[in-house]
């Protein structure tokens, strides 16, 4: 009995490197051998999808790439899925970034979805990358007030004043929807203050799971029309548009990792209670 207790007590004091190996194995195995687990669609993802589905072709959609490369494992599949959907809906896609790295990320995403960016025949007509606008929240305010004023040139240095994709788009009010790829600051609270409140434009969030708790109140109050949360949100959206990709492939690994962490928590508690009993 004392040997068993000693083992149980040791369960509560495992070296954290053992945990790291467990997580590494838990994440790797499903990537090598997929489990094809079912995936339900959360209400907020469905709202997002339904809203985009309802948009007529030719409407102007703004995409703000406010993220750094660290968030790409979660946000990049979201970006690709949303861009693919918007491409199918034949909307006008206007990309902008209020974080410096976002401009390059937007270039990569457009290239992956359209096959090319600036050299694509549709560039400037159906989609554009306006590049990085400095200033954070004040940059957002300037963009909302005058799109072409804040971005007189696109990411590649071409003047924007005569671009077909921007015709009729003067202020934030002229967008049918603005999708914010949110990771930090500037992010959702800033876009709410500078675009949604003053101009009444519809906002949707594509956020990392880490900031989902911060973003959820805006969705529940009706200030946002939809939200994608992390890699799971990207996977749900890929299924909805009928193009399962990287995100769906990553769901098995995420499931197994969650189970591994839950088991680790249970094991830790067993060890903790065993130690408490031993002390009593």
């Amino acid at each position: 009995m004392s040997e068993e207790r000693s083992f149980l007590t040791r369960l509560g004091r495992m070296d954290r490197r053992f945990m790291y190996v467990v997580i590494l194995i838990a994440v790797s195995i499903p990537l090598l051998r997929p489990l094809a687990l079912p995936l339900s669609v959360s209400p907020e993802t469905k709202l997002f999808y339904d809203y985009v589905q309802s948009l007529p072709s030719g409407t102007a959609i703004g995409l703000t790439f406010d993220c750094q490369p660290g968030a790409l494992p979660e946000l990049y599949p979201q970006m690709l899925a949303i861009l693919q959907h918007l491409k199918v809906r034949q909307t006008r896609i206007i990309c902008v970034a209020f974080m410096a790295e976002g401009a390059m990320i937007a270039h990569n995403a457009l290239t992956d979805v359209f096959g090319a960016s600036q050299s694509h025949p549709g560039y400037g007509k159906t989609f554009v990358n306006l590049g990085f606008i400095a200033g954070g929240e004040t940059g957002m305010a300037a963009f909302a007030k005058s799109v072409k004023g804040a971005a007189p040139q696109d990411y590649y240095g071409s003047p924007t004043d005569k671009m077909e994709v921007l015709s009729g788009v003067e202020t934030a009010k002229d967008f049918a929807l603005i999708v914010e790829f949110a990771y930090g600051t500037p992010g959702i609270p800033e876009i709410m203050r500078q675009m949604q409140s003053p101009y009444g434009v519809k906002i949707a969030a594509a956020a990392t799971a880490l900031i989902a708790t911060q973003v959820m109140p805006y969705l529940k109050s009706g200030q946002m029309v939809g939200m994608l949360t992390g890699l799971r949100g990207a996977a749900e959206y890929e299924n909805l548009i009928g193009k399962p990709g990287e995100a769906v492939a990553g769901m098995d690994a995420q499931s197994v990792a969650h189970v591994a962490i839950i088991l680790a928590i249970l094991v830790g508690n067993i060890g903790y209670y065993s130690e408490r009993r031993k002390q009593k």
Binding site: G12, R16, G268
Partner: peptide, 9 residues
């Protein structure tokens, strides 16, 4: 994962 194991007691 290591924080969850250590903290969620």
């Amino acid at each position: 994962s290591s924080a969850s194991y250590r903290v969620f007691k």
